[in-house]
Design a binder for these strands. Sequence first.
DNA 1: TCTGGGGTCCTAGGACCC
DNA 2: TCTGGGGTCCTAGGACCC
Length: 421
Amino acid sequence: MSKESGEITPGRRETLVPAKRILLVDCDMFYVQVARLEDPDGVGKEEYLLVGGSPTGRGVVTSASYSVRAFGVRSGMPTAQALQLCPQAKVAPVSRRACAARSRNVRDTLVDLSPVVQAASIDEFYLDLSGTERLFHQESQPETAKRIREEVLKRTEISVSVGGGTRKLIAKLAAGRAKPAGVHVVPPGAEAGFMRTFSLREIPGVGPALAETLEARGLVTVDDILPVERIWLDEWLGPSRGRWLWERVRGLDSSRVNSEDERKSVSSERTFNTDLTDDRALELKLLGLVGSVGGTLRRKGLRGRTITVKIRDGDFKTRQASHTLPDPVESDRTIHSVARNLLMELRKRRRTSVRLLGVGISSLVEGEGPPQLELFHTGSSSESERDRVVSRVMDDIRSRFGHEVILPGSMLGGAQGKADE
DNA sequence: TCTGGGGTCCTAGGACCC
DNA sequence: TCTGGGGTCCTAGGACCC
């Protein structure tokens, strides 16, 4: 395993502040693991296991077992294509609920083990262990990483890989080197050398588009770009992105591990098995999406001001329209009345077959304040206390009897005249 | 073999205000 | 009466991540 770390380092003269000790805990092929744990006697037994999409539909691979990856299957690949490459693979659906629950387990365990934990995604968690040396009896960072890995496995049955370093960027890249089911810690002072082992495309934040721009200048690896002066990167990429890349290739990353980042938006979207052309059919789908977004919003105790409708046409062209209300809202009726208008606008601009429809809400604030005084609040776009109560009663009924019990339209329809004013 | 669903962040232009 | 400059909000689109 990796060398020792954590001692005084010859490489960093300038620091008076002790180097940060950051870990990234990354679940190994998370969705595959969850699928196996949830159905140990069925699909969980399959060596060639692929999670996500349906064999016939339009889905893509969310995660694949290593045996399947050996055939060239990657996440994000259309499931149909993956099955061409690896016909013996069995496809399991993604269980969102199970994955969310397992993710919560892992996070709760980490919160017990580390003072600062940030959930970066459903299967990735940053830990900041700076200042815990005494607490952990001078345990080295690789030892800590190993102990955490084992503790998470014991408590949650989830196998993780752990990367470590002095910055999030380093920890993240190190976690890649730790996979599968291992630990990799980059000692303080070794960051720049570590970065030189990567290609530019491997740096988080460098996607296909930026990689192509750089490649056009003959820049493929970190080593290629190190001799390039900052002014040229600014010139080619703009000052903001230029500076960002200049820092990244040197292993610099000032972002902090932040345990309290609030969510900025809630959305729901659906790709149809076959494209839809009929406006009535689209409106029906819109209703379901609004219910999903509104339900999540209320469950989280949030309200939002900006409503966005997104369409992907049959030719994969993606368009969106949004509208911002003066006051934050949470009821299905209000969200729907805005979303419906936006959908009609989008359809008016371009009326072709629709592959995907989505609804989102942003500009979020904590909801559940004191009831608003309707007296001062009579604009047509504003939401009444009655709207909110109706939505919450619906949530309650759905949570008890399932989503299919009441057609949301029956209640929305009743209030519609009011929405249109 | 066509391309999921949940997010975040950035950019750029126009409106509007001082 | 010939036109500045900065700040903020809104909208649309795009890149990127898991």
